[in-house]
Each structure stands twice: as C-alpha cells, then as structure tokens.
Design a protein around this nucleic acid. Structure first.
Lengths: 223, 223
DNA sequence: TGTACATCAGTGAACGCGCGTTCACTGATGTAC
DNA sequence: TGTACATCAGTGAACGCGCGTTCACTGATGTAC
C-alpha cells in the first residue's frame, strides 16, 4: 500500500466495485423513461442483497450496475432516500404476499398461525438483507414506519388471524393486539438472531421454531 | 444551499459536529499514556450512544470529543475497528453484570429465569445503542462473535439457569441449549423490536413481557 | 410527404466535503552518569 | 547537584479516495403544421 490510507476507506464497508465491462444499454424510447426507473429499483435491490448494508450501496454503484451515469438516477428519484424507500416498499409487499401464500388453505386457526410464523421466519432467512432493512434498522425511510406497520399487510393480517383463532375458541379470548405483538416478537427474535449471528451454534432452525411454537400454543391455551 | 451537494453528505447520517470549544486537555505525564486510552474509549461510547450508529462515529469526532488530534487515537489503537472492539467488550461485560445483579437472590429457578429475562430486556431498552451494536448488527468486530457469545457471560449463564430449573424439576428435562436459545429469541425479539420501531403502538412493555413469560412458563411446563 | 421544433432520456465534468490513516515533527519528562 | 539523552505523548499537515448532488449540455424522437 502507498503512503496514504485512502484504500482503507474503500475497504471499510463491503463496497461494490464497478463492473469493468458494463452491458451496453440502449436509451429508452421517448415516453418509456419509466423503464429505467424499474431497472434502477431492481439494481438497487440486487446491490442491497449483495452487500447487506444500505450505507454501502452508493448511487454511483447503482448507476453503474444499470449501465447509466449517476445523474440519471435523479431523473427518477429526488434523492437517494426516496430510492431506498421505493425498494423497501417492494420488500414490504413481498413479505405480505409470501406469508399469505403460505397460509392459504390452512384448516384450523392455530395451524394457520403456525404456518404464518414459519413463513415469516423463512422469508427473513431467505432474504436476510431485505429483512434487515425492514426490521433491524432505525426507521430512516417512511417505509417500515410505525403507522404503516400497524395498518398494512403483515401485521394487520396477523392480528386478524389471532382474532379468528380467538373467535373459534382455539385460544382464549383476550387482547388480540397483545397476543399478536407477542407472536411477532417471537418470530422476529428467531429471525433477527439468525441473521445477526449466523455462526452461533444454533439448534436446527425447524427444531427451534417448532419448540417455540409448541410452547406458545401450549402456553396460550393455558392462560 | 450552494451549488454542490457536499453538505448533504454530512447530513446523510447523524454525524456529530465537533465541539466549538473543546475543554483544554493537559497532556498525560510520562508513563500515564494509558489514561488517554480510557478517555478515548469513554468518548467513543458516548458518541455511539449519541448517534446510535457506529458508522456515524468518526475517528475525528472521537478525537475532538477527547480534546486531542486524530493521530493520537493511533497511539492506542491499531485502527478504528480495534477501538470499537474495546468499546463493545465493555458493553458485553456490562450486560452480564447487569443481569447477574438482577437475578441474585432469586428463590425459585423459574422466577430466576423470569427475572433474567426482564433484566435483559431492560438493559436493551435502557441502552438501545449498546444493544444495537451487540446484537443487531453484522458481526464486524470480534466481539459478539459466535464463540464468544456461546462461552462467555450472558448466554453461558442463561444455559446454566435453564439447567438448574430442569434439575429442580421446575421445567421438564430436555435440551437446555434448545430451551435457552428459545428464551433468548423471545427476549431478543421484544428488545430489538422496541429499539427498531420505537413508535409502533406497543402494548405496555411490562404487560407484553409478562404475557410472553407466562406463555413461556406455561408452555414449557406442558411440553 | 417534409420539416421545424418542443420534449425527453441521458451525459460529462465538476462541486465541496468527510473519511481513515500516515508521516515527520515537537516538546515535555524522567533517568543514568 | 547538574546535565546529556532516551523515551514518551501528542501535533500539524497532508495523502488518496468515495460520497451525494448539480449544472450545462447533447442528441434522439415524436408531433404539429
């Protein structure tokens, strides 16, 4: 290494080196400007997955991945945070879709809750960087903001599922919000620990989750 | 704002502006160089608490807080990550001490587990930035590394407490590691969600934790 | 059918800044003789 | 008791770099007449 430490700044985070040869990009036709927008979102998502850290994904790297110059980003997004917002929005919808698909067709309400829990953890483990952005970082974008969390998709559906289980008598009547946040805490605990400490000697994930769900179900029915 | 966007880079993260007037610092006496080391660690910890983000704490800001120039940092730490390591080490020990103090004198083994859980959550809620560094970030320093987590302090003590409860017949004999990781997931889930989404309409924390512990205890005893 | 023109997608170069780190140095302090 | 000297704590200036963002621009494309 040379005299100064500039190189070290580059290795500080898992920064992405620009592709040496970028794919030749054809300029969008007039009126098709939004095509680039979608490409930018897709590239940003890919880079987030690659680095696992939003701070390590630079506007330059995104532009390079798309095969475009940095200023082009600003034709479609006011600034970097608006771009990240768009990406998170997509993630959030994806989580909801994923869970609802997994839970479709479940027979009994408690079984449905278990499926829901497993799907949640699975989504997080399969998409750790997405999960990290959604639930493990300070809320620096409006997505994942608290009101959104409460009203929309995943959490709203969980509360409904708890209410269904209560109505069916599968678990005792009670505060559905309390029970739902409790369940959320459990699945989030598993998911986020697995992501944050991947090399800890965890028990088998299915075993751990089965254990916790069994305990939860037993415990909930005994309250 | 002027033409160029340099200022925006400064607002990207919660960066700390150098104190306009730094306290006059007297140079350590010969042989007392380690005094500065301690001051650096303390200042770094304070800045971490202030910003809640290790990436936002720069060597310059640390040096400024201590009242010293940046190169002085390197008299005591090989690089920035070694400094962060030292800070985390202190945090880790503090968590263990905190929990053991809370649990001292507990009568029954299950009550001890509950106290342990409550102390864990309380530590996290009272020291969110410390907690974030220890358990909510990728392991970029050796502290919080997996082997350490397993062997040392908090987790080791939890496993022991579970084994005691099992030996006493308070909870069924079984895989203590499994039960311990399950409990850890529960308390971590609560703690990290409270930290990551502080404005979500959580139920009362004590209520939520009591609920979860009751469910866990009921469930564990019924397995 | 031809053409002037407005619109649009995207570029090239630069801005000011903060970063981690290194270097050659200064000056105070303790110690050996 | 005095003094030369090694040691030590800390400094001032700079390095190369990557960052988000802005500006004036280029050139292709669709459209009105």
């Amino acid at each position: 290494m040379g005299r100064a430490g500039g190189g070290a700044a580059g290795t500080r985070t898992g920064r992405v080196t620009p592709a040496a040869v970028r794919p030749a990009r054809v300029r969008a036709r007039k009126g098709d400007g939004d095509l680039l927008r979608d490409e930018i979102v897709a590239a940003t998502e890919a880079l987030l997955v690659e680095t696992g850290d939003a701070a390590a994904v630079s506007v330059r790297a995104i532009a390079d991945a798309v095969g475009v110059t940095p200023p082009s980003i600003y034709l479609h997004f006011a600034d970097k945070s608006e771009l990240l917002y768009a990406v998170c929005e997509a993630h959030f919808a994806a989580l909801d879709t994923y869970i609802e698909a997994a839970v479709a067709g479940a027979a009994d309400p408690v079984g449905a809750l278990a499926r829901r829990a497993k799907a949640y953890v699975q989504f997080g483990v399969e998409n750790p960087e997405h999960y990290r952005i959604l639930f493990m970082r300070p809320t620096d974008t409006p997505v994942g903001s608290e009101v959104r969390l409460q009203r929309s998709g995943p959490y709203g559906h969980l509360v409904e599922a708890v209410e269904v289980a209560m109505a069916a008598g599968a678990i005792p009547q009670g505060d559905a919000h309390l029970v739902a946040t409790g369940l959320w805490a459990v699945v989030h605990g598993v998911t986020s620990l697995l992501i944050a400490k991947p090399d800890f000697p965890w028990p088998d994930v299915d075993l751990l989750l089965d254990h916790l769900l069994r305990v939860q179900c037993q415990g909930l029915s005994q309250i």
